[in-house]
Amino acid sequence: MSSTLLRTQDLTARFGGHVAVDGVSCAFAAGALTAIIGPNGAGKTTYFDLISGQVNASTGRVFLGGRDISRMPVAARARAGIGRAFQLTNLFPNLSVMENLRLVAQSKSKRRACIWSMASRHRTLIEAAEQALEQVQLKDQRFQKISELSHGDQRKLEVAMLMTLDPLVYMFDEPTAGMSMDEAPVVLDLIAALKQRRDRTILLVEHKMDVIRALADRIIVLNNGCLAADGAPAEVMESDIVQEAYIGRGLEGALNEL
């Protein structure tokens, strides 16, 4: 078992009287892909927000490689190694596909805020962006604006952005939602290849059971903001807690309804 890369400790998000995430303690090892499941409103996305910093924890902490990052702003966490692909596509709409990826590559460069050089002449950044384009098969659309791109292609780009950032912790929020049958494999293959590298932690919020079966090493279940189950996929699917949480309908049935 490899070492823990990401750990949350009693992580809680309270909005007024509503507790969206309630004292979740969980450790994630490098090289493992953990699927996070649960009904809508269970706090999956908020849990992601807490880890990447869009929401600050009411109580509890987040550790990345032993370092407490709970009070760090979003940008600093991204630089420290927390990367995220969003559930709702969240790109730079009036910039080209290429420029979207180039900006991500630039964020990792030493000269990211250089004011005297020409961005068009930083070859390495452009090459990094081109490589990512190739990975998600968007090379032909490189000069198109995001707003001219099909939904599926936007989703692919969303994943490519994260791949270019290459963080220590990859967080995917329903990466294949809204993709057609022939588009999804491109993304899933990328995630599978990422797993093979063994040095990154991958968190995946997903509703599609076939995706989870194919990729997950472990499943955690969130229900009403609480950690309801945690374990190997086969175990968790059969567990009483999961069956109860979904009121006997069976996890698969409940998930497929969503």
Partner: peptide
């Protein structure tokens, strides 16, 4: 410059600029 490109990104989507 790289700096200027970031400014454009911020204009387009400050949330995502922060996230990357």
């Amino acid at each position: 410059s790289p700096f200027g490109r970031v400014l454009k990104a911020i204009r387009e989507n400050e949330f995502r600029a922060e996230a990357i």
